[in-house]
């Protein structure tokens, strides 16, 4: 509650340390380990892909960074703080947004929700916030749909609304869980340009990505995850057939050819 009460959205304390530091992290669902003994560091200002097979724990990793999942062991700091305190600097685009699409809200209403973290209690979004929200919608190519009820969008458009909401948050760390799923090629290009813009502005962007082919094109850093953290680092050094095989098993062969 305290984080939200401090209404002003001051940036995280600058430091030389990594944006995210994870040590010995273990997360279990019931008695099944989903993340096991993970050590991981994300430096500031990278545009990083997280790849790994289905069920590798990628979503769980993001949710743990947000403090929405409690680890059974290990520690996480985000901007040098415990996850729950760092949330105001994070924008999160979930993999599947389980909202009621019949909710009485327009596209703009939803994107405006991204501004709430800047407002604190009681204050309403003002003209500036609307402007920022429309700008975010423009970045994902959806301004013309701003006043549609959200249920009247296609699946890809709905996904873009949630990306726009995250953009409107003006965060320092972006966590996006498969934001390109169900999005056409043109939109994907547009979105990746937006992400590059964020990186250029010094923000840190982590994207769960399922298309291995495009990893070297889109991202400068990559993490290979499969319950354990197989490897992470610059794409040029880490995105190798060997590590991919360790992550995916034999299926990775399709790529290395």
């Amino acid at each position: 509650m305290a984080t939200f009460l401090s209404a002003r959205h001051e940036p995280p304390a600058p430091g030389d340390g990594p944006v995210i530091k994870v040590t010995d992290l273990t997360v279990m669902y019931g008695d099944r380990p989903v993340l096991w003994d993970v050590d991981w560091e994300v430096p500031a200002g990278v545009l990083m892909a997280v790849v790994g097979p289905n069920g590798a724990g990628k979503t769980t990793m993001l949710r743990t960074i947000l403090g929405l999942v409690r680890p059974v062991a290990g520690s996480i700091t985000v901007f040098g703080r415990p996850p729950a305190e760092a949330r105001r600097w994070i924008a999160y685009v979930p993999q599947r947004t389980a909202v009621d699409w019949d909710f009485p809200a327009t596209v703009l209403d939803v994107v405006l929700m991204g501004r709430y973290s800047h407002l604190g209690w009681v204050r309403r979004p003002g003209a500036q916030d609307r402007e920022r929200a429309l700008e975010a919608l423009a970045q994902v190519g959806m301004v013309h749909l701003a006043h549609r009820q959200i249920g009247q969008l296609s699946v890809g458009q709905q996904q873009r609304v949630f990306v726009a909401r995250a953009l409107a948050q003006d965060a320092w760390l972006y966590l996006m869980d498969e934001p390109f799923a169900g999005v056409d090629a043109t939109t994907e290009q547009a979105l990746i340009e937006v992400l590059r813009g964020l990186k250029a502005a010094g923000r840190t962007v982590i994207v769960v990505h399922h298309d291995l082919q495009t990893v070297p094109l889109y991202f400068d850093w990559v993490t290979l995850l499969n319950v354990r953290c197989v490897a992470w680092g610059p794409v040029t050094t880490v995105f190798t057939a060997d590590y991919l095989r360790q992550t995916y098993g034999e299926r990775a062969g399709i790529l290395s050819g």
Partner: peptide, 12 residues
Amino acid sequence: FDPAFAAAMGLP
């Protein structure tokens, strides 16, 4: 509308 988002944003 989206309690998961509210939580991720740090709302109590």
